[in-house]
């Protein structure tokens, strides 16, 4: 990370290939040797509990027990979705309180959140949910807000904290020239906070298609020495947009992006194949195993120092030309 004001305060262990925890998947898959670590979204084993003054997030003990027994022996990282770290009016403190309790029972190697916001201040002054995550504008105010909160999180948990680059469909939000775009926003936050990046290559691919830019050039501008984890996933076409739907196998151009990017990320600790729980039955265990095996081949080759000479522009151009 060049020109940084803060450095990552904690090191990232090399874990390997990861899979999200889904209660619906067979236990054997998690114990098959295809997976080196598991990524858990704690909210999926929680429920909300209204109190007199707030709404708390409560871990459901039976679900926690099942998750732990399924993932027995595997290192675990957390991938949260409810923090809303970029909401100007305030973030979700109930999430952090739940994460405190979660860590007491099941310590995580690192944890991550999405760079964006999904709550806002309603007309009555209460916090309301948007219903979908939205991106932050690349402004100094947004960068400094998230950097301040990220630094607090790093201090609170003492393990690496990662921010994920989002997929977005909205065009050109208002920006400050010092920041420029979403890559500049991520860079400034990481520099200011000492947090790291969860580089979601499917999100980069999605944005590149929908906003018509070259994803390899975008990767070249990213702070790759601060990438601690990489996500790969599948998507699908809808209304002329490539959706970050997590509903299928990894598209070939995303594998190419992984081949290209991985050797340039010196501190990356793992690659996770993401999908949504509701699409797991359609995808099937065999396909999941094949995606994990494919990711491992690239991971292993990278460890052996072979970058495999990925063709950059031609594959992506071919993909865009097949847009419906």
């Amino acid at each position: 990370m060049s020109g940084g004001e803060a450095r990552p305060s904690t090191s990232v262990p090399r874990l390997g290939i990861g899979l999200p925890y889904f209660a619906s998947l067979p236990v054997e898959l998690y114990q098959s040797g295809l997976i080196d670590f598991v990524e858990i979204t704690p909210e999926t084993i929680c429920r909300q509990r209204p109190t007199e003054t707030a709404i708390e997030l409560e871990i459901v003990p039976q679900q926690m027990e099942k998750a732990r027994s399924t993932c027995a022996g595997l290192p675990m990282v957390v991938h949260g979705v409810e923090l809303s770290i970029g909401s100007a009016h305030g973030w979700n403190t109930a999430y952090l309180e739940m994460l405190d309790a979660f860590r007491e029972t099941w310590p995580f190697v690192w944890h991550s959140e999405h760079l964006g916001f999904q709550t806002f201040l309603g007309a009555d002054g209460s916090t309301q949910e948007v219903g979908v995550p939205l991106p932050l504008p690349p402004t100094m105010e947004a960068a400094d807000l998230v950097a301040r909160r990220s630094a607090m999180i790093l201090q609170r948990y003492g393990v690496p904290f990662l921010l994920e680059n989002p997929a977005y469909y909205l065009p050109d939000p208002p920006s400050d020239p010092e920041i420029g775009d979403d890559i500049g926003l991520m860079r400034r936050i990481l520099q200011r906070s000492g947090s790291l990046q969860l580089l979601d290559l499917h999100n980069v691919y999605c944005n590149a298609i929908n906003h018509r830019f070259d994803p390899f050039e975008a990767v070249d501008r990213m702070p790759l020495d601060a990438v601690a984890e990489i996500h790969i996933a599948g998507g699908s076409w809808e209304n002329g947009f490539w959706m970050d739907a997590h509903d299928g196998r990894v598209p070939e151009p995303v594998w190419d992006l992984l081949e290209y990017t991985l050797p340039q990320c010196p501190c990356v600790g793992g690659i996770v194949f993401e999908m949504l729980d509701e699409h797991v039955p359609k995808l099937g265990v065999d396909a999941i195993q094949q995606e994990l095996t494919h990711a491992r081949k690239i991971w292993t080759r990278r460890r052996q120092g072979d970058s495999n000479g990925v063709t950059r522009l031609s594959d992506f151009a071919r993909t865009v030309s097949t847009c419906p």
Partner: peptide, 12 residues
């Protein structure tokens, strides 16, 4: 545009 105003407007 202040971040709070931007987010409020966008969400609305």
């Amino acid at each position: 545009m202040a971040l709070l105003d931007f987010q409020t407007s966008l969400v609305r």
